[in-house]
Structure formats: structure tokens, C-alpha cells
Amino acid sequence: MLDVQRLAIGYGSHVIGRDLSFSLMEGRALALLGPNGSGKTTLLKTVLGLLPAKAGAVLLNGRRIDALPVAERARRIAYVPQVHAGTFGFLTRDVVMMGRAAHGGILSAPSACDHAVVDRVIDRLGLTHLSERPYTLISGGERQLVLFARALAQEAPFIVLDAPTANLDFANQGVVLRETWRLREAGYGILFTTHDPNHALRWADDTLMLRQGALLHHGASDAVLTGGHLSELYGIPVEELRTAGRRAFLPSS
């Protein structure tokens, strides 16, 4: 279990959020919703142990994440960053292999086991046809899936995704979110940020609303995601649509 207790987050001496408490079980998906600048990415990085906590603690199965060696941390919690083009045209397969970095010694070549894991996750995400292509020459949606595969190769029970649907077209957003949901069903604990409340409503068990570094609302997505709460979160009127037992939100004017 990932347990965040009264966490304060920030850069350097600058604290941008405090008193953040929530937890995430394996096999559950948690969406993090909030306006630009609300501290979502800072929170993710602190949860991952990439930024030091300003107060409070992040516990992974009872152990403080900042007390874990960096390699051990990577074997317990994986990170899918926002899609980037990358500098070098590594083969897709080489990119996925980077997920195995924490599993071998600093001087050791990938083992047969590492190759087997990489083959398996590439196959699982349907990326076999891309595996011998340069990462720089595939589409944004494909790159996002390659970064998914890299995180899966870490074989960590928790996966943190920073805006997995940002910069993707409509179809690819669906592909990526369905994949996220599949990972949840396979037993991974998923934490992702999004700018679309409809994504949280459909693809997350729980939703956390972050405004100016403070938790505004937190609970089951169905209950937390209401027009009223979203208006409060983003400071604009929000229209709620209902059809055939489903709900969706639109920013209204």
C-alpha cells in the first residue's frame, strides 16, 4: 500500500502544498485533478521520492520512500513521465530495456531474464511491430505506450503517470486510458494526473482534487466528481450532462 501522510511539498525552501494525506491500494486507480500550477507534478515527484518531502511522509508498505536506495525504490514504484521526443533515436526495445536498469548491477549487461521481461511487456502492450524502430520516429501515442512498457519492465507494483493523456489525440487518449485500466485490473496500483474530469470519472476508482497545494475533495470518483465540486476546483461554471446512466462534464460559459 502507498500511504501519504500529512505531506508537505515544494521546491527548495518554497513550500507549495501541505497537509496532503491519501492512500492507494494495489489494484486501484487514483486520479489527481487540479488546475495548472496547483502542485500536481510536484506532488507526484515527491510521492516518487524524486523531491524531498517538506514535512510528513510517503510510505510504501510501511517504509519511508526517502529511506529506500534509489534502485530499490524503482523496483517498487515506477514513473511514466509526460511524452517527450527524446534526444537520441534509441530503438523502442532499448527504451523499454531502460526499465530494467534497477534490476542489474551498475556494470552488468542485461540478463536473459531482463530480455524475457522486455519481450513480455512489449508483447503485452502490442508494441512488437515497433520494437526495432527508433523511438524518435514513432507517433506520440506510440511513445506513450513505449514509456508504459518501460514502467512495466520495472516490475513495480505501483505506477505513477504524469498526465498520460496530455498531447495525445482523441483516439490515443482512449488507447492510453484503457491500457491504464487494464493495468489496474492486473493488480497494479495506479496514480495519474489528468486535466479531464471525464477521464477521472471513467478510469479512476478514486479522485483527489488539488487546489493551490491543498486537498479540496477526496473520495470515490462517482461521489467526488460533481458539477459543484468542479466549479469550486476550477473557478468556472461546469455543466453536467446525463445520458443513459452515464455522466459527463463540460466547461460552460
Partner: peptide, 16 residues
Amino acid sequence: NVMSLPDEEARALGIA
């Protein structure tokens, strides 16, 4: 290969 990624990404992959 991992060292050629942004620093935070490389650390998240388990590299000091």
C-alpha cells in the same frame, strides 16, 4: 542510455 534521460526520469528508473 538511462543517463541520457532527464535527471528525474533516470532516478525514477533506479539510477543514482
